[in-house]
C-alpha cells in the first residue's frame, strides 16, 4: 500500500506532495512524540504519527526513512516545516482524528491489504 492509497482510503490530506506518494510503500505505523525515542524505533517504511510540527520532525523522518509523517487532529503544521519537508522529500499528511485512531486505522488498512 502506498502513501497515496492510504491518504485516499482514510481521507487524510497530503500536505507536502514530494512526487513520491504514489511510489512510497507503507510497512507499519509508529507513534511517539519523543524524537530520540522515535529515532531509535521507527522502522523504514513506517507511518510516523506525532503532534510535533517543528523542523526537527523532518530530519527524524528523513533519517529513519519513515514512509510519511501523519499529524493528527488537524494540528496546523509550521510553514518552515512544510518548506523543509518538500525540499527533503518527506511526505506530511494531516488527519482529522487522534493519534490513537490514526494507528488503529493504518493497522486496519494494512491488515486488509494483506
Amino acid at each position: 500500500m502506498t502513501v497515496k492509497e492510504l491518504s485516499e482510503k482514510l481521507g487524510y490530506k497530503i500536505i507536502t506532495e514530494t512526487g513520491d506518494s504514489t511510489k512510497t510503500e507503507i510497512t507499519g505505523v509508529y507513534a511517539c512524540d519523543l524524537l530520540s525515542h522515535a529515532m531509535a524505533k521507527i522502522n523504514t517504511g513506517d507511518v510516523w504519527v506525532t503532534v510535533h510540527t517543528n523542523l526537527n520532525v523532518v530530519a527524524v523522518a528523513s533519517l529513519t526513512e519513515a514512509s510519511c509523517v501523519v499529524i493528527p487532529e488537524n494540528i496546523q503544521i509550521e510553514e518552515q516545516t512544510i518548506e523543509r519537508a518538500e525540499k527533503k522529500g518527506v511526505i506530511f499528511l494531516s488527519a482529522p482524528v487522534s493519534a490513537a485512531r490514526v494507528c488503529y486505522d493504518v493497522l486496519s488498512v494494512l491488515r486488509e491489504a494483506k
Binding site: L34, S36, H37, A40, H52, N54, N56
Partner: peptide
C-alpha cells in the same frame, strides 16, 4: 520540541 528523552547517547 520533542528532545530531552535521555536517549541521545544510548542511540
Amino acid at each position: 520540541m520533542g528532545f530531552g528523552a535521555g536517549m541521545g547517547l544510548s542511540n
